[in-house]
Design a protein around this nucleic acid. Sequence first.
DNA 1: GCGAGCCGATAACCGCGAGGTATGACAGCC
DNA 2: GGCTGTCATACCTCGCGGTTATCGGCTCGC
Lengths: 290, 290
Amino acid sequence: MESRPLRYFVAVAEELNFARAAERLSISSPPLSRTIRKLEAELGVTLFERTTHTVALTQAGTVLLAEARTALDALEAAGRRARRAGSPEPKLVLAVKADGDAGLMEAILARYAAEPASEPVAVRLCGWGEQPRLLRQGEADAALIHEPFDHTGLDAETVTVEPRVVALAAAHPLAARDRVSLADLDLPVSEPTYPGDLHRYLDKIVDEYGVRDLPQLLKLVALGDIITLLPESVVSLYPRPGVVYRYVPDAPPATLAIAWPQQSRSPATAALVRAAGSLADPEGAHVRRG
Amino acid sequence: MESRPLRYFVAVAEELNFARAAERLSISSPPLSRTIRKLEAELGVTLFERTTHTVALTQAGTVLLAEARTALDALEAAGRRARRAGSPEPKLVLAVKADGDAGLMEAILARYAAEPASEPVAVRLCGWGEQPRLLRQGEADAALIHEPFDHTGLDAETVTVEPRVVALAAAHPLAARDRVSLADLDLPVSEPTYPGDLHRYLDKIVDEYGVRDLPQLLKLVALGDIITLLPESVVSLYPRPGVVYRYVPDAPPATLAIAWPQQSRSPATAALVRAAGSLADPEGAHVRRG
DNA sequence: GCGAGCCGATAACCGCGAGGTATGACAGCC
DNA sequence: GGCTGTCATACCTCGCGGTTATCGGCTCGC
């Protein structure tokens, strides 16, 4: 199995249109068409159901799309990690969403610096939920990230668990109360599978309003357009005139984890994980693999 | 990053000799040499420390070797899984070492057949510890395997936990006893990290005597050359005149797990895992990911 | 119901780069 | 000091991945 045909296949599978896929790959469509046919022949399987005006994935194609993505990610990761390992002064790259460190970054780095296996650390700031991709593609060695996220190919360990607050417009009726319950908030989330629901809820807001970061999100809160649950640690970082924060004791807490690529067994990464893990309160901490 | 240079790199890294690597790849050495140099240039990193008579991996090379192996495995897996998914009647492939199913195979398959999402199952017999590779390279969808094994890229769930017996030559002094303790056996294994030690111990025997399966191993036992710990379930499967089995209550039990590739979320695989997992005794069962 | 417009497949051609052979440079060994 | 074994270089060839041009067929609009 070669990588190029798989890359081409992924492009077509994502576009479901040969012409657009070819453009995206910066080639013309004939070689793309040919390559896909050759791939199908090699696998002995039809990957696309084509009529003249529609392209659809077959069952085998659907399987291949998922597999190909992870394989190509692994390929990229191999190159990136080797490059970094050979750089004159290899640095450990720690990916963090801005202000997504629960205020623990300094403590983690300080503890890490005291470890014998420590190396210089470069902090890489990234956007909402970008961390898994960065780890999988070898652009980062470790990441601080809030649960839940897709653990595929990653190992993770809990760093800290924080209470939740709700961000409300100052004029909101509930703002008068000292603390509020989940039921008061009437969010479109169900209790049992809650963390995932909250994720989806945030995704919807991100889609709908196009917000890219916390300041923008809080602006919407101030305008009274939305309310949202946040980890306690953001309260002191984002004082906003029109926004009040209230504890939600019965909301599932926010879990911050440190994650790293599963096959990475480098002493430096291990030391960083140890440093972050040692901050966790003993009973709350646990390892989750996968 | 392309797959071909990586394949070449792995060959050289494993042979540590360009000529032999070229032969293994069925090419001549100049294009190999060139490709490696090009790869080094692309990564901006030297992968091998070469003198005229020795080739050694650099730090970056060591990192790349590990990463490349997993990436190439993923590539193979993509092809194999797509091929199987597209075959006229896709079958679920379950890898098992012969007699490594603790006698549960029939029960698992029967339960599975009752599941709504069940598909035909093909059992693939394999050798000692081959299962992880089969899963990673896409040759199997699930595997029954004894802990411990390398969980990288795999998820696993405990199926059953069995007591250990020791296989002794009939003439062995301890054969007179009804049950023996670990201390009596004087095996070169330490208690706390035991399962791994047992694995290493078996590996050593396999290396030293060239045994490939249980009958051969039991022959050595009958001859009095070795003693070995086994799961209880093999006792009734391998009655041997010169061999007696005795319980070892204080030995760590043998844990049989069902494992599957981490990214595999196919309903059929999930149903098989469910079927196998439902046989586990509730308190012994747990999911281990990674 | 028919023509215009898209879209994927095919054909013919081209150039790069992967592969081969021959040779060189160099170190260690009898 | 030749001999052997190693990796690198030089040079040639040819296949394959790339392009442009063209075809064939479905869909949609009027």
